[in-house]
Structures are given as C-alpha cells and as structure tokens.
Simulated assay, not measured.
Amino acid sequence: MSKDKKPQENTILDIAEALKLSPATISRALNNHPHVKEKTKSDVLKMAAQLGYRRNQMASGLRSNKTHTVGLIVPRISMFFHAEVITTIQNSLHKHGYNLIICQSNDLLSMEQELAEILYSSRVDALIVACTLQPTDFSHFDKLVGSGIPVIFYDRVPLNTYNATFIKGDDFRGGYLATVHLIETGCKRIAHISGKLSSNLYQDRTAGYRKAMEQHKLSVNEEWVFHQELTHENAREAMTRMFEGETVPDALFCANDVTAIAALEFAKENGIVVPDDLKMIGYSNDPRTSIISPSISTIEQHPDKVGKRIVEVLMDLLKNGPEKPEVKARPHVIPVELIRRMSS
C-alpha cells in the first residue's frame, strides 16, 4: 500500500455483514433506538469496536439536519462558577444523547464573534453563551437565531432586548442580601468593589447594594465604590486607596470571591483585623472561601441549578421549537443564598 494512501475505513455495511443483520438495524442500534433489543445493541457496539468502525457524525448530521451537538461559549473555563455550570450541562446533555463543544472567548468580543461563526459552520443544534464583559454587539448571533437555532444566554446576558432565552442568577437580590447582612452586624461605612457596569452582573449587584444602603438610611461614600476588572491586583489597589485616609470602611462587599480573597490578604498584611476592624463578604461561593482563615462569607449562586435549568429549557426548545419573542424576553432567574462565615 502506498504511504500516501489512507486505509479504507469499515462502514455500517461491514458490521451488518459480520452480524448477518440489515444495515437499517445496525444504524438504529448505533443510534440507541428504543425498538432495538439491548442484546442486539450490545452485539453491534462490540462488533463496531472490533472492526474499528468510526461514525461520521458530520454525514449523519447532513442527512438528518441534526448533529446532536450543542456549542458553549464561556469567558474563561478556569472560573469556578463556569466550571461548575459546564460540568452540569455536559452531564445532563449526555443523558439526552447530546455532545457538548466547549469554547473559551477569553473575555474578548472578537474571539466570541469568531467562535459563534465556527460553531454555526459546525452545524450545532443549539448554542449556550455567557457573554464577554463588553456585551454591546450581538449581531454575530443573528445568523443562528435567524436559522431557528436556539440560543441561550446565561449569567452574563445582553443588557438590551435580544431574541434569545436568558437564564441568570438573582444578582440584585444577591447584592441586597450581602449588604443587609453587613448592616445587620452593625456596619455603617460599607465599601463596595464591583465589576464594570457594562455587564448585567455588576449593574444588578451594585443596584442591590445601593438599595440596601438607601433602605437603612446609610450614605454611600462614592470614593469607596469601585467599578473595575475584578482582578487580584485591582482589589489590592482599591484597598490601598480606601485605607490611606483617616476615615476608613468598617465593611466591604466584593462582587466576586477573587476580590474578597485579595482584600483579606491585604488586610492581614496591613494589620486590619477581620472581622473586628473590617467585616467582609464576597460573591459566588468559590471553594477557597471556606478553607481560608478567617473563612469568607459569600453569596451562593447554585451553578448546578443554573446548569440544570439551561438543559431543561434547551431540551424544550429543541423539542417544541423556538419560543415566542415575548416569552424569550422574560429571563429565567435562579435564586441565590447568603452563606455566613467568620469574616462577618
């Protein structure tokens, strides 16, 4: 055989000949059809493995107009919340016979646009997206929506009305619960480190913070309210600015746990005793917040519930077709929960 010539792959016909069954039966068995006996399915799968049969998913998709593949775009796979959501989605989709293609936008709109085109060209049956922090242009999803392909936005969702389904946490209530908790422990000078207001997450969490302060007739020191990229370095810089004057905060609400951990590190290094001098609460219930000392109070987002709801809604869309626009405009909101620990 020529070195440049690929070996011919076995097909369904080869499996059918080996088992003395019809090609149609082999096809149904490989597709886990309920009318095929379990023993037949087992025999077919064993013979397929023995012959080195490799299913051509693309060809099957072209015939049926379904690839049983769902695309997922997230900002960063390493983020705890998204990692948990991805695990739940993949496990749940697998039970329904769907595969998941996971893509990472690196929080770049240009990358998100490129990935949306790639997934569309890959003929995914649906797309799940957590937007970048600059969600202003969604035209790269128009092709999918216009083709009747369900698009579900979760967590980070478009700020404007868009003809897709939204699934998000109750971030306003999360911000409100966090701030009320600090107020109920006796705090009056509460600072807030939040993300950029281009994202629905930080708009809502900040709005919850401000509502709680207003209801309890506490003034907000605008010099202690930060809207920035929530990195370790930015958190330390914000802490430096807050604690360089004579009047300092007695509490801090951080819009994510990465910031809360960095703030606690700064406090330890500068002789600020938590929770005696400064009470703190974060957001997302990152596992590190429960093992650090002192453990950090936080808001639980229930990523497992988010993932399950995404798949429930998606299966309904794939079965019954696109929702009406007015139904899509109403987001599915997942409740959040206050987790009190030693930092407050």
Rank of each mutant, 00 (worst) to 15 (best):
I15A: 08
I15R: 10
I15S: 06
I15E: 01
I15H: 04
A16H: 06
A16K: 00
A16C: 02
A16Y: 06
E17Q: 15
E17I: 12
E17C: 04
A18F: 00
L19C: 02
L19G: 00
L19H: 02
K20S: 15
K20D: 15
K20P: 00
K20Q: 15
S22W: 04
S22D: 12
S22N: 12
S22P: 03
S22V: 07
P23T: 02
P23I: 05
P23Q: 09
P23G: 03
P23H: 10
A24K: 13
A24W: 04
A24P: 04
T25M: 08
T25W: 01
I26Y: 03
I26Q: 05
I26P: 02
S27Q: 01
S27P: 01
R28G: 03
R28W: 03
R28Q: 08
R28V: 00
R28C: 08
A29Q: 02
A29P: 01
L30P: 09
L30T: 13
N31L: 05
N31K: 15
N32K: 13
N32D: 14
N32S: 14
N32G: 02
H33V: 08
H33N: 11
P34V: 06
P34F: 02
H35G: 03
H35R: 10
H35F: 09
H35S: 12
V36W: 06
K37G: 13
K37V: 04
K37F: 09
K37M: 04
E38G: 00
E38H: 08
E38K: 14
E38C: 00
E38S: 02
K39D: 14
K39Y: 04
K39G: 02
T40D: 09
T40S: 07
T40I: 11
S42A: 14
S42E: 15
S42R: 13
D43C: 05
V44G: 02
V44S: 08
V44E: 02
V44M: 05
V44A: 05
L45S: 12
L45I: 14
L45D: 12
L45P: 03
L45Q: 14
K46N: 12
K46S: 10
M47W: 05
M47D: 06
M47G: 01
M47A: 07
A48G: 10
A48P: 10
A48I: 09
A48K: 10
A49I: 06
A49K: 13
A49H: 12
